[in-house]
């Protein structure tokens, strides 16, 4: 994906038209993917959209209620609160993660060839989300956690990282930055490697320093990759769930009741599958719009290398 824009050079030969005999084998090869897509994505979306217009508790048949669920969502304070805290999470998570990953990737690219260091950067991403969440949850415990013991030892006040309504969402956002930093770094790093060396050599000949090189060469040429990274991470970030589910469970006072957690709560705790489906459709719409806008604004399909 990262190198895709670079390969969009003018084609020398026309693509060969598929010969008649290839259609059947091609279809056979595609069948598992199509089946998976149909069964696990397409049909559930259709079914989910249908359920969003019903009152459905899973145990008895869905009954059609028209737009009632959507009207209820519009005036549901918990939904609006969940949008606010989700946005809060996304902003903190994406800002910190993207800046840190960019910095880390540039450092890796410019200053080290060590596979060990590159591997270590990826390590947190290899640990399961739930494990990461629980380990940080315990580390950050107010009374028994290591972090608070250290804060206490150096004379600072203890912090209720997960229990203080003003801090909990920030804590969760930073825990996930810790886990996803390596993965994001790797994506950007791949993008950096696709930038031709001669551009850097030219910059160096022109007497550009590290900072100037970064601003005038690395950043512009990295734009398509950054756009891709942002679309993927923002869409993923909106779906924060597991860290919340194993730590705060939406509390304190809904401070971490993000939209996906609220959907889960409505569906699986309160058996309100119609309402939860409507919430899901709202989320899907929001994410689709965000992805489209991002692609447009960041011109992800064009590289400055071509100009």
């Amino acid at each position: 994906m990262a190198t895709m824009p670079l390969s969009a050079a003018p084609r020398r030969t026309k693509p060969t038209r598929p010969r008649r005999g290839q259609a059947v084998p091609a279809l056979l090869f595609l069948l598992p993917a199509i089946l998976g897509f149909g069964v696990f994505f397409a049909w559930p979306v259709v079914r989910g959209v249908y359920l969003s217009f019903t009152d459905y508790n899973l145990l008895s048949a869905p009954s059609w209620v028209g737009l009632e669920n959507y009207q209820a969502i519009a005036s549901d304070p918990v939904f609006w609160n969940s949008m606010v805290v989700t946005l809060q999470y996304v902003v903190i998570n994406i800002t910190v993660q993207t800046i840190a990953a960019l910095g880390l990737a540039v450092l890796l690219h410019r200053f080290t060839r060590s596979m060990v260091i590159r591997g270590v950067v990826m390590l947190p991403y290899l640990i399961a989300n739930v494990v990461v969440a629980l380990v940080w949850y315990w580390l950050a415990d107010y009374n028994l956690g290591l972090i608070n013991s250290v804060l206490d030892a150096i004379g600072l006040d203890r912090v209720g990282f997960f229990g203080d309504a003003n801090i909990a969402m920030t804590t969760i956002a930073l825990v996930n930055v810790w886990r996803h930093l390596g993965y994001t770094t790797l994506l950007i790093f791949a993008g950096l490697q696709a930038i031709p060396k001669d551009v850097y050599e030219a910059a160096s000949v022109d007497g550009a320093g590290e900072w100037r090189t970064f601003r005038s060469i690395t950043l512009p040429l990295l734009r398509p990759v950054l756009a891709f990274v942002l679309v993927v991470t923002v869409v993923g970030s909106f779906q924060i769930f597991d860290t919340i589910a194993v730590t705060t469970q939406g509390g304190p006072v809904d401070a971490t009741n993000a939209i996906t957690y609220y959907i889960y709560d409505r569906a699986f705790t309160r058996f309100d599958f119609g309402y939860a489906s409507a919430l899901s459709v709202v989320l899907m719409t929001i994410l689709a719009v965000i992805a489209l806008v991002q692609m447009r604004v960041l011109r992800a399909d064009q590289s400055d290398l071509e100009r």
């Binding site: 696990f40 996803h180 939860a276 489906s277 899907m284 689709a288």
Partner: peptide, 18 residues
């Protein structure tokens, strides 16, 4: 952070499907 756009819908609806 899951990477699919429609996971929540899928999760809710695939149950009904199953």
């Amino acid at each position: 952070m899951k990477k699919s756009l429609i996971t929540p819908v899928a999760a809710a609806a695939s149950l009904a499907l199953l």
